[in-house]
Amino acid sequence: MKKIIPLLLSFTLLSGWILKDHNPHNIKKHASLINSGGAPTGKTGAPGESTCTMCHSGNVNDGSTFSSISFSGLNSEYVPGTTYDLTLTLNNGSTKNGFQLVVLDSITNSNSGTLILTDAVNTKITSGNNRDYLNHTSAGNSQTSWNFQWTAPSSYVGPIKIYYAYNIAGYPYSNTSGDDIYTSVKTLSVPNTSFLSTNELLDFNCFLDNNKRLNIISNFNSKKYSKMKIYNITGKLMYSKNLNLRANQVSKVNIPSNLTSGIYLISLDLGTDKKTKKIVL
């Protein structure tokens, strides 16, 4: 009896270690069980992210022909501040499926708009690395479609991309040997017609990219060059450049080396209309 107790204890400890999430020998084998309630963040295949293959076996497949995201807006075009109904549907799903998606500004690859939970039983929202994710839950992994809402950002930011990855679980569900991983992207665009209002003909957004270049997105097609000017906070003109603006396209401007870090005013002048915005360089 004395010999049996130590043997049982050793077996229990060994079994616990084998099934432990961080055990590198078995994290993939048991991923379908460990992540049945939703994947860790950052598994959508979006820029800077991995996919479900970090935990599940199998290769990454193109999911564009086997899945879709319906969007309640016209022509997959968004209007700032508007809330839309969306549904992710898998056409090749099995009895056990999982997914994760993220909505990003395609220029800065940062969160864009706001994900809204509409089905707390089958979906959940998680956050990580300054990004928000929609995932399946344990109850939702028997679904082949999931509903949610999204509110567009308060202003146009250019194309917006919904990156998603999904797993079609193989049998038996206790391991991942038969799993198939798919990724795809849904793009939401600004309207083809200029987004002009009766009170304001010209509008634009501006920001610095990772290469310290000034990016300008305007709503206007200029028939001739438009004047872009940079003023310091006291109103002194520091730099000017002619730009050939195209609606919803990015114009990149190299920042002059004589401009030190600080707050500046960026002005666009079309001759008939002028708009100024503040930026930190």
Rank of each mutant, 00 (worst) to 15 (best):
M1I: 14
M1Q: 11
K3G: 00
S10C: 14
L13G: 06
L14V: 10
L14P: 01
S15T: 11
G16S: 08
G16L: 10
W17V: 08
K20P: 02
H25K: 04
K29V: 12
I34T: 10
N35L: 14
N35Y: 15
S36W: 03
P40K: 05
G42N: 11
G45P: 14
M54T: 14
C55Y: 15
G58C: 09
G58D: 10
V60W: 08
D62G: 08
D62K: 10
S64Y: 00
S64Q: 05
F66C: 05
S67E: 10
S70L: 05
L74K: 05
L74D: 08
N75G: 01
S76K: 12
E77M: 00
G81F: 03
D85H: 05
T87M: 09
L90M: 14
N92Y: 01
S94R: 11
G98T: 12
F99W: 06
F99E: 08
V102R: 06
I107P: 01
I107Y: 06
T114Q: 09
T118S: 06
V121W: 07
N122C: 02
S127A: 15
R131L: 15
R131E: 12
Y133D: 11
Y133C: 04
N135F: 07
H136W: 15
T137Y: 06
T137S: 13
S138N: 13
A139W: 03
A139D: 13
N141S: 07
S145G: 02
N147R: 10
Q149D: 05
T151W: 05
K161T: 13
K161P: 04
Y163A: 11
Y164E: 09
Y166A: 06
N167I: 13
T176D: 12
T176E: 11
T183R: 01
V185M: 09
K186I: 01
L188R: 07
P191K: 01
T193N: 10
L196W: 03
N199E: 10
N199A: 07
C206P: 03
N210A: 14
K212I: 10
I216S: 12
Y225H: 13
N232M: 06
I233Q: 04
G235L: 01
M238S: 07
L243E: 13
L245W: 06
R246G: 08
R246L: 14
A247P: 08
A247K: 15
A247S: 15
S251I: 07
V253H: 07
I255A: 11
T260I: 15
T260V: 15
I263H: 07
I266E: 04
L270Q: 04
T272M: 05
D273M: 00
T276A: 00
K277E: 03
I279T: 02
L281S: 04
